[in-house]
Structures are given as structure tokens and as C-alpha cells.
Design a protein around this nucleic acid. Structure first.
Ligand SMILES: NC(=O)c1ccc[n+]([C@@H]2O[C@H](COP(=O)([O-])OP(=O)(O)OC[C@H]3O[C@@H](n4cnc5c(N)ncnc54)[C@H](O)[C@@H]3O)[C@@H](O)[C@H]2O)c1
Ligand SMILES: NC(=O)c1ccc[n+]([C@@H]2O[C@H](COP(=O)([O-])OP(=O)(O)OC[C@H]3O[C@@H](n4cnc5c(N)ncnc54)[C@H](O)[C@@H]3O)[C@@H](O)[C@H]2O)c1
Lengths: 210, 210
DNA sequence: AGTTGCTCGTGAACACCTTCACAAGCGCTA
DNA sequence: TAGCGCTTGTGAAGGTGTTCACGAGCAACT
């Protein structure tokens, strides 16, 4: 039951990519895959794949490769994809609406179960079968639906306050789209998706090449 | 003129965060900032800030700190934020529309100048002052507007094809939102923004904590 | 000018990650 | 059972990134 502990961060970050690749292979009817092939499809080095997978306690078969289904199950176990985590999206502007309508969550172990906003004009509107509720009702929503993940898509100025509210109602992890650094207790995992930062990084490499 | 070469990847990835922080400080009327303060606001270690900034050839003043305006200019120079890079968004679905309406590009050196899609029903629609054009017209668009950056927000299945088309018309860098690994020539910088991956990484850390 | 307090820049140590290279192991065939 | 081809798992080496710790330098005040 217990997945192996202490998987390196770099490995954890690659597991979802392996998983996605394996889902594709399984759909194509492949039953086994070598580290070399998986590496090519996932865009990484083959030795890295083997080292990563060995961290799971997963063992491949020498001379043959890894069993696709088995590997999928093991990675799913480690990532917790097999449990369905309830998600709330806070801030139903441009981005929040796009996320609410996105269908790619369900196959990855996440289910958007609530949408909130602080703008009275938005309350009551529907997206993808859910009604936007007021941010002030978050405590009740979180309790009723046992919210586990919070996604922040508010303007940067409101993001810290929203993060505090999410932590207060017991959310277990946070994904932040607002371009600002958030302070949360150390035990709450938090990650950011920062489009503008990515573009600027690209800017550097392109700029430098010329 | 020439910025220092060979800035480590890890440093480059942090420069946009420093920049954003400095913009905030400048707006608040601060003229100098210490590495300790900048570190706290940017959520990193102070020694790291100093090492990063020393890579720019930027010099602070001992006993005082760094001059905010000067630092902003230097980072902007390195990132190429001071030139206005024309951007095309390919795939005007949920996400593409949200990005098209997003106002945060202009202050970071990027300007969305064209939107394309392959769905005839979407051609001609307007977003944020731009009209969606057909993907087949990309060569002409790229030439006329001197497109420098391509953002891919199509379904994963179409992403590689779109990437090839972007490369063919001479785009200088690519930002990919589709959950798939893209193959592009080595000289084209490419980065991905992968929401589902981020959620799964969070899943691991949350799962593990329990 | 001398002293004090603060902050930078950086060498050195450490931790983490990647890559190479190869022995060990598996399945298949004869 | 022996031999062969293929692929894994991992020790070791090399590289990158982080953090510590401290000398050096500037400003301000006496
Ligand atoms: N739209 C994009 O493509 C894009 C791209 C990159 C980053 N971002 C970032 O994502 C965030 C959202 O962007 P957007 O374009 O959707 O902005 P938006 O202004 O369209 O939407 C923000 C929403 O948050 C709500 N809100 C504000 N304060 C709130 C609070 N305290 N509690 C709950 N809801 C609150 C607003 O009512 C609004 O509906 C911003 O931080 C932006 O910088 C957006
Ligand atoms: N919407 C989200 O919140 C979200 C979140 C994470 C990832 N993504 C990813 O971003 C991508 C877009 O998501 P979406 O929800 O906007 O999808 P969507 O289906 O709403 O939009 C895709 C658009 O791309 C267009 N398109 C398809 N093939 C094309 C081609 N060859 N050339 C040009 N345009 C083409 C379609 O006509 C459509 O308008 C997907 O890969 C999705 O997995 C989306």
C-alpha cells in the first residue's frame, strides 16, 4: 500500500509525463515498453527513465522492458491519481472560466466541484454544470464537499488573501496562476503556473541567440 | 550592449520573478533594495539573489544594496523585455481565448498580434481587437507581422503539426500549453505550461503527507 | 580620521541531478 | 543446458545548483 518514500523532486516532476505517455501506449495496444522507447516518447534520457522508475520500487524485466499496465498502476498510486480529489477554482475571470470548462482533469485524478468569485455580478452564473458561488461561502463549500485542492485564478493583489482563506478551510494543496509569490504554511504543497515568466525565459534564450 | 553570456538556466528562470518584484518596489517609491529584502519578497535565499545578480554584471553597493531602477533596466535588457516581441496564439478554444484577453503581456515585452484557428466556424470572430484568421494563412501572417513567438493552445493531437508550421514560418520560440512533448529543432527555444502535470505533482506531495 | 554597522561578492562545501558504462538477468532457441 | 541477444538496475563520475561564511567595501556619525 505505502508507496516508496523519498522520491526525488526531479523524478516526481517527470512521473506525470511518463504516465501520459503510457496512457497513449496502452491505448495503442502496447503491453510492454523499453526504457529506450519510453525515453524517446517522453523526451528524456533512457538512463534517467530507468533510474526514475527504480525509485518506485517498480521492477521491469531484463531483456524485455516494463509492463505498461503495471507501470501505469504504480505511477498512479504514487501520484494519488487513483483517488478523486475535489478541486475548487477561485476567481472566475478569463482564466478561471477556461479551466472550469477544461475536461482534462477527470482522467488525472481531479474533479472540479466548486467555483467561487467575489464579484456579485458573477455569482449564480453557470459553467460546465457548476454554479459560481460567493467566495464568502468557501468555509461551507469546503466542508460540504471536502475540498482538497484550491486553484487560484484571481488578480495578483487578491491572491495572498485567497490563499490564506484556502488554507484556513483546510485545503491540502494549492495551484496558483496569479503572478505573485504566496506565503503558506510549510506543510501545504504549493505550485505556480506563471505564463508571463515562461515567456520572459523564452525571451532570454531567443534574445541571446541573435 | 551585449549582456553577459552563459547565465545559468536556474538564474534565468528567477530573473522574471526578481523583475516583477522590482516593478512592485519601484511603484511603491523605493529606490534601493537589499538582497535580503528582495530575497524575502521573491521567496528565495539571499545568497542566491546576490549570486544571480552578480551574473548580470550588475553591481550593487556594499552597505546599501541595489538601485531598483538600474536593476530593472539590466534585467530587462537580459530578458529582452525592452523589445516588443510579436506573438501569435494558435488554437482559439477555451484557453486561447483567455490568453487573448489577458492584458499582462504588454508590460513584459510581448504583444499578441495575431490569432489563428483551423475551425472555419471560428474564423472572423473577434477577441481583444483581433480577428481570428485561418491557420492556413499563417505563412502570410508571420511574414507581414514578423511574428517572433508562437503560443500553442490546440488539442494535444494537433500540437506537433502546429509546432512544425510555426517553425517553418520562422518563429523564434514556442510556448506550448498542450499536454504533449514536442520535437523542434534544437535552436528553437521551447517551454511548456502543463497544468495537469502540476496538479499531479501536487497530488504526490499531498498524498505522501497523509 | 577612526569607528561602527550594514551589505555585497564570492570561494568553498555540500546537495542534488544527470549521464555513462557495464555486470547481471531474462527469454528464447537449439 | 548452453549460448545469444536484449534490457534492466546501479556504481561511479561529472555537472549543476544551493547554501554557508566571511573578507571587503561603503556610508554615516563622532
Ligand atoms: N487570462 C490569462 O490568460 C492569464 C495568463 C497568465 C496569468 N493570468 C493570471 O491569472 C489571474 C486571473 O487572470 P484573468 O485574466 O482570469 O483575470 P480576470 O480579471 O478576468 O478574473 C479575475 C477574477 O477574480 C475575481 N476575484 C477578484 N478578487 C477575488 C477574491 N478576493 N476572491 C474571489 N474572487 C476574486 C474577480 O471577480 C474576477 O472574476 C491573474 O492573476 C492573471 O495575472 C491570467
Ligand atoms: N482549457 C484549459 O483550462 C486547459 C488547461 C490545461 C491544458 N489545456 C490544454 O490546452 C489545449 C487547449 O485547450 P482548450 O480547452 O482551449 O481546447 P479547445 O478544444 O477549447 O480549443 C482548441 C482549439 O484549437 C483549434 N485547433 C484544433 N486543431 C488546430 C490546428 N491544427 N490549427 C489551429 N487550430 C486548431 C480548435 O479549433 C479549437 O478552437 C489543449 O491541449 C488542452 O489539453 C487546456
Amino acid at each position: 500500500m505505502a508507496p516508496e518514500r523519498d522520491i526525488p523532486d526531479a523524478t516526481v516532476a517527470r512521473l506525470p509525463v511518463y504516465r501520459r505517455t503510457l496512457v497513449g501506449l496502452a491505448a495503442a495496444g502496447e503491453t510492454t515498453v523499453s526504457s529506450a522507447r519510453l525515453a524517446e516518447l517522453a523526451g528524456v534520457n533512457a538512463a534517467k527513465v530507468r533510474k526514475d522508475l527504480s525509485r518506485l520500487g517498480t521492477y521491469g524485466v531484463r531483456g524485455v522492458g516494463y509492463e505498461v499496465e503495471n507501470l501505469l498502476m504504480q505511477i498512479g498510486e504514487v501520484l494519488g491519481v487513483n483517488v478523486d480529489a475535489p478541486v475548487v477554482i477561485v476567481g472566475m475571470g478569463n482564466l478561471g472560466q477556461a479551466l472550469a470548462r477544461y475536461g482534462g482533469f477527470s482522467t488525472r485524478g481531479f474533479r472540479v466541484v466548486a467555483l467561487t468569485d467575489s464579484d456579485p455580478k458573477k455569482i449564480g452564473k453557470k459553467f460546465a454544470g457548476l454554479t459560481i458561488q460567493h467566495q464568502d461561502d468557501l468555509p461551507k463549500i469546503a466542508k460540504d464537499l471536502d475540498i482538497s485542492v484550491g486553484i487560484i485564478t484571481t488578480p495578483a493583489e487578491a491572491a495572498q488573501q485567497v490563499a490564506d482563506e484556502l488554507v484556513a478551510v483546510g485545503v491540502g494543496s494549492i495551484l496558483n496562476f496569479a503572478p505573485t509569490v504566496l506565503n503558506v504554511p510549510a506543510h501545504i504543497p504549493i505550485r505556480k503556473v506563471d505564463l508571463a515568466t515562461e515567456l520572459q525565459i523564452l525571451g532570454y534564450y531567443q534574445h541571446r541567440a541573435s
